[in-house]
Design a protein around this nucleic acid. Structure first.
Lengths: 345, 345
DNA sequence: TGTTAGCACTCACTTTTAACGAGTGCTAAT
DNA sequence: ATTAGCACTCGTTAAAAGTGAGTGCTAACA
């Protein structure tokens, strides 16, 4: 176990390093007001902390920096859930002053807010669509056999796609088919929609003996596509990466920025579900090579107990965990409140 | 005027520098197979070219690099419109092998293709929506007074927005209003839609004495919004910037990447209309500080004589203009063909 | 026994110096 | 007009020397 003094020193080292990005020496620490013992004592303690693997030195004659294990310990034991300042709390409330009606916009807005709040890059994984239920389907024939299909879920999420049919679909046929489909399919979860839709079209065809084979094929393709599509990922504050001293080197910066641009990779990284309310992964804990010098703070957002997506914050390992965690917690609250407003059934 | 030999030397310098990113010396040039004269002669000619402002030296004992004026001259007079190789032409054709029905996707796809083809970052300014005509309007009531409004243009472009009304709109009222609006407003250019829509709703209200004030207000807000919204900008190959030796320095890279993320700034930059088929701006000609070390190749795309948007290629001043221009020309052709297919009325 | 002062040692970082060489401009010979 | 020759420039690289922040260890101290 660590003594109180060791805890104090470890915390001081991490705090200092987070603030300055410079290795912290024993003399610097000894000058702090909350440190009553000498630099030599600190050196002794540091040697012990290093032996435990909590801190390390970049080279012989430098100060100490936290190791990954050190950050881990700091995050697990040394963070004090500093409550947000009153003015910040006020600011946070006013952020959502005017409601955002569409979830898409709301999410984008939230990503931007969080990055503004923390000065880190943010990722927001949008809700999975499979779970949502169909509210309305609309077929709108265009010229030359092109048809726009619009799908609205109960939460107001809108998807659309344009198909090309071999022959024009008449407005009447479209409206008849649509009316029928809406009657029977409303409330179907999107995950089942494809199967049920095909079935329904088949039935419709046999009853009306209309030529809807092509339409059904086209719809099938569309919905298959739909089904495989992953939730959107929204990014905020990409440029914040540039401000971090650890990413002044293009070689360090590049893999991170490249990863961030890849929806699929990000999705794979973010999608695993979390048990805890808040998950923090540090450096190699991310299991992604591009993020080996980064830390990620993640939180699930949910409405009425249903987990919908992920809110994440990405920065250097030397990120301000305290501020990050607090910001994400508070924003999460406000965000979920807004989201609930939009998701009333 | 420049002598043939000077032209040869200038072209050789630019070509070489584009390829190697290293200042070109007289000795290097004298070794080229198409150069029959000595390095001393080349030095004399170089001195003249430098006096004319076409080339410059980074420092006394370095070779020469093209000045902005030099690039300008090269682009205006020395580029040979090298026709694309047969295999590339074939590849280009197969790129659009399976049609993309939606313009949005088509544009995104094109941006990606162009960046793959050239290894530069690409920007595509989407078509202005104002000019498009309304094909169909759909009001879909959700729970709690929320209404999704979906707008489809004749080209199959879909916009949607969710509004919050003070009281629920009944399905019947919605469908009556919608039918009426579609009858009277189909074919209205989006630029006039707002005014005409308001008028129409007012008339509808007086005829049916229904409570649609709120709806009309909400629609007004939506459409105003819509109207002010700028065309989307699609990006391709952002990561290509990392490969350019001139952008290995974060200080150089940052402003460019930051600019690219700003829709508004990019819009202002790209939107001015072009007289020519292809416009090339070099360094300070861009009139944007962030792009002072970049060159941009732009081309308007249009269908049936109507200019719709811009296709652009962005790279270092030392970019391969020849390849860039050729790629953009050829892709432009294929892109417009696809676009025309989708825009049949 | 825990703490601290003192001191030799390490090593990144900075500055200095020197050597190198690619490239130039000029001059004189062809 | 062209070119060979040569002195000169200057960025680049490498080696050398100096600086200083920081450490580990030891011995003295409370």
């Amino acid at each position: 176990m660590l003594t109180d003094r060791q805890l104090l020193i470890l915390r001081a080292i991490v705090d200092d390093y987070i603030k300055t990005a410079q290795p912290v020496g024993s003399r610097t620490l000894s000058k702090r007001s909350d440190v009553t013992f000498s630099s030599a004592t600190i050196r002794n303690e540091m040697a012990d902390l290093e032996e435990m693997g909590l801190i390390e030195k970049p080279h012989t004659s430098a100060g100490r920096i936290p190791s990954e294990l050190g950050y881990r310990f700091y995050v697990d034991h040394l963070i004090r859930p500093e409550s947000i300042s009153p003015q910040e709390a006020k600011a946070l409330k006013s952020l959502f002053a005017h409601s955002v009606n569409e979830n898409d916009r709301l999410i984008r807005h939230t990503a931007d807010l969080l990055s503004e709040l923390t000065h880190y890059t943010t990722l927001v994984l949008g809700p999975k669509e499979e779970g949502q239920r169909l509210h309305h389907l609309e077929l709108i024939p265009l010229a030359e056999g092109r048809v726009v299909i619009v799908l609205v879920t109960e939460t107001g999420h809108v998807e659309h796609k344009t198909l090309q049919l071999a022959e024009a679909l008449s407005r009447e046929a479209a409206s008849r088919l649509m009316e029928r489909l809406n009657q029977t399919l409303r409330g179907t979860p999107l995950s089942q929609l494809r199967l049920r839709l095909l079935e329904e079209i088949r039935r419709f065809r046999s009853e009306h003996s209309e030529q809807t084979t092509l339409l059904s094929k086209a719809l099938d393709i569309v919905l298959t596509d739909q089904h495989e599509e992953r939730p959107l990922i929204y990014l905020g504050g990409k440029a914040n990466m540039f401000d971090q001293p650890e990413f002044q080197d293009v070689a360090k910066l590049r893999p991170v920025l490249e990863l961030i641009e890849q929806q699929e990779a990000l999705f794979d990284f973010l999608s695993p579900s979390l048990d805890n309310q808040i998950l923090i992964t540090i450096g190699s804990e991310n299991n992604v090579d591009a993020l080996k010098d980064c830390s990620v703070i993640r939180a699930h957002y949910s409405v009425d107990g249903v987990s919908l997506g992920t809110l994440a914050l990405i920065g250097p390992k030397r990120m301000d965990y305290n501020r990050g965690i607090n910001s994400i917690i508070h924003l999460l609250q406000a965000f979920q409140t807004e989201l609930r407003k939009n998701n009333l059934d």
